[in-house]
């Protein structure tokens, strides 16, 4: 597993998008394709955010080190966040700019989602080697934006529901757990493979 090339992760990350395209082409997307595409893209972004946040706890708990795939997971999350926003603006809102701007100012769940997306855009833009070297120690600090970005993303997801579903509560629980693990003292768990 640890010898798997990173490129495989990037390719695998395209599978959910391929699945959506297949559903659209085959008519399996349902009678409300716009909402379905928009929601699926957002949900896939959440999965990649959660997987990226799981890398360090997994190493601490089991010694399995997937650190070299973390950038691919984060960039995949950013990719789906971008597609999610594109689906919102293009398919859902049909670029009704005035209504979109009004909604963005007035609707807290959209503000939360957009704030999360902006943070994820900054993280993606500074994920390359040049930025890592240029930012030095500040890079680690900057990339702690992952935590508020993930929290706001789940907040955005729950906030748009009329009634919070069991799946919504599960996401809240998983993300809270992943973020709470960051509060443990440094060096907990398995730090070196036996």
């Amino acid at each position: 597993m640890r010898r798997l090339p990173v490129a495989v992760v990037y390719l695998a990350a395209l599978v959910p998008l391929g699945w959506i395209v297949w559903l659209v082409l085959s008519g399996g997307i349902g009678v409300d394709p716009v909402k379905e595409i928009e929601h699926r893209l957002g949900k896939i972004a959440l999965w990649f955010l959660a997987l990226g946040l799981a890398v360090t706890p997994l190493r601490r708990l089991t010694g399995v080190n997937l650190l070299r795939y973390r950038r691919a997971l984060g960039l995949s999350a950013a990719f789906y966040v971008g597609l999610h926003i594109l689906a919102w603006g293009w398919l859902d809102m049909r670029w009704l700019w005035a209504q979109m701007a009004g909604d963005l100012l007035k609707r807290p769940y959209l503000v939360a989602g957009m704030a999360s997306a902006l943070m994820i855009a900054v993280l993606a833009a500074t994920s390359n080697g040049v930025s890592v070297r240029a930012l030095g120690a500040r890079w680690r600090v900057l990339h702690r934006l992952t935590y508020p970005a993930a929290a706001l993303a789940v907040g955005h997801y729950l906030w748009q529901m009329k009634v919070i579903t069991p799946e919504g509560w599960a996401w809240a629980g998983v993300m809270t757990g992943l973020l709470a693990l960051r509060l443990l003292p440094r060096g907990w768990g398995v730090t070196r493979r036996a």
Partner: peptide, 22 residues
């Protein structure tokens, strides 16, 4: 009169297809 979390000014017509206008 908007719902607090979304505008009620326009609507999506179910069944109108992927690229139908609001």
């Amino acid at each position: 009169v908007d719902h607090p979390r979304w505008s009620q000014a326009t609507e999506r017509v179910i069944g109108a297809g992927l690229f139908a206008p609001r």
